[in-house]
Amino acid sequence: MEFWKDETEPIKAFLALFEAAAADPELFEGLKKVNQLIWFDYTESGPNCSFYIDCRGGELKYSAGKPADTPDLVMSLSADDAHRSWSDKLNPVMAITRKKIRVKGSATGLLKLAPKLKKVAAIYMKVLKDLGWEDKIIK
C-alpha cells in the first residue's frame, strides 16, 4: 500500500471521517438522503479492510467490517484509491470506467452524495491532521 502501514489504518481514518461528517449538519442531512446500506469493500488491500455506513431510515450508523444485512450497494476498490477518493483526488466516474472502482447494486444514493464530495474531502483533511497523519494528505 502506498499510503497505509497496514489494513487497520485506512479503516481508522475512514470511520473517523464519518464520525466527523455525521457531526456536520449539512453532510448529515445529505447522508440521510442516501438512505442506503453501503459496504465499502477494500478487502483487496487486506481481508479485514472494509467498513460500512447505514443511512437507512433517517439514521446514520457506521462500523468496521461487512454489514450483517445485505448491502444496497457495494463499492470495491483498494484502500489507496479510497484514500484518493475521499481526498477528492480520484474522479469516481473515471475510476469506475477504468474498473478501479467496482460497483454492485444501486448507485442512486451515491449520486446524491456526489455534490458534497468537496466538503467531505475538506473534513477528511482535518481528520487526518487530528490523527497525526498529515503526511498522508495528498498535495
Binding site: I96, S106, T108, L111, K112, A114, P115
Partner: peptide
C-alpha cells in the same frame, strides 16, 4: 452502474450532479 441508475431514475438521474 450507469444503466442501473438510468433504469432507476431515468435520464434525469444525475440532474443533481
Amino acid at each position: 452502474v450507469a444503466s442501473n441508475v438510468l433504469h432507476e431514475n431515468g435520464t434525469a438521474a444525475n440532474l443533481m450532479g
